[in-house]
Design a protein around this nucleic acid. Structure first.
Ligand code: SF4
Ligand code: SF4
Lengths: 144, 144
DNA sequence: ATCAATTAAGACAAAAATATCCTAATTGAT
DNA sequence: ATCAATTAGGATATTTTTGTCTTAATTGAT
């Protein structure tokens, strides 16, 4: 469904959010440990999230990654996916004709439409906040 | 959503079906041309479909690929996807924890559940027949 | 001012997916 | 029996994705 990079990106953002609620910045090392991902690769992905203003970085000693508390509720899963995988999840679905539209649909267009729209709706209406809170309350997990 | 291999596999199966209705066998060359895919790679994918008894091959001169007319209606999109991409589409969703289940869900589990089930339902309830008939009637297209 | 800790960035490496090429085996037509 | 057409299968090549490593830039604490 998503690329590995995107999976790591989502998990990283969730972990950073949980820590930001406590006022802690986190390093790529801590993140990689917490979400069970390759450290250097994760660091690359974090750069992308920073470029897209989804997470914020502070360089130098005592630096790290954080997300301002008040932003966490407004960040949607769709932004993270978009920052890393682009819009392929919306556009590259189905059988990926070169040009595709309602007037020249591939054979599965109508069938996929519902799934695609359901996915789109879900990504656009799931906030980082709810995902992070579920982690904090032990309802869901970032690894194992 | 799907791998390229899977996209080609689906399109190839649809094209073979349309031709099988007319009693024609088709070669990988013709298929690749019709679905706009790399010929040799498509041939590889066809082998997988043959192994899974989704399409049937006849070797030698005047040979080619075909699907018995009476089977076309019973072949579901899910079988094709499964033959090529395996069950990653069902199992490898979301954030892909190492082990994942209802009791130890990743943060997006509940969110993804609906999308995943919608996709599963669609794949299991879409037959090659309906896709092929839409091509024949000009309602959908295999390329451009 | 210096130092240690940290992110940023780019070069490099490995693995996986995609794609090509060549040869062998099969088979219908002649 | 031979030939031409065709699938099967394996070796190889290319591209993309995933992952690593090294160095530079930044910055808070001392
Ligand atoms: S025609 Fe529709 S389903 Fe097919 S690739 Fe285009 S947008 Fe996706
Ligand atoms: S916990 Fe659920 S959503 Fe997450 S990877 Fe497992 S099955 Fe998919």
């Amino acid at each position: 469904m998503f690329s590995k990079a995107c999976e790591y990106g989502i998990k990283a953002a969730i972990y950073i959010a949980t820590q930001s609620y406590e006022g802690n910045r986190v390093t790529p090392k801590a993140i990689a440990l917490e979400i069970d991902s390759p450290k250097a690769f994760t660091a690359k992905i974090l750069q992308a999230l920073v470029k897209h203003d989804i997470v914020f970085s502070v360089k130098g000693a005592y630096g790290g990654f954080e997300i301002p508390k008040e932003k966490i509720g407004r960040i949607k899963l769709s932004q993270i996916v978009n920052a890393i995988d682009g819009d392929t999840i919306y556009k590259g679905c189905g059988l990926g004709l070169n040009q595709c539209n309602e007037n020249h649909p591939c054979p599965v267009h109508d069938k996929f439409k519902r799934v695609r729209e359901e996915l789109k709706y879900m990504l656009e209406n799931t906030s980082l906040e709810e995902l992070a809170l579920n982690i904090k309350s032990g309802l869901s997990f970032l690894k194992v």
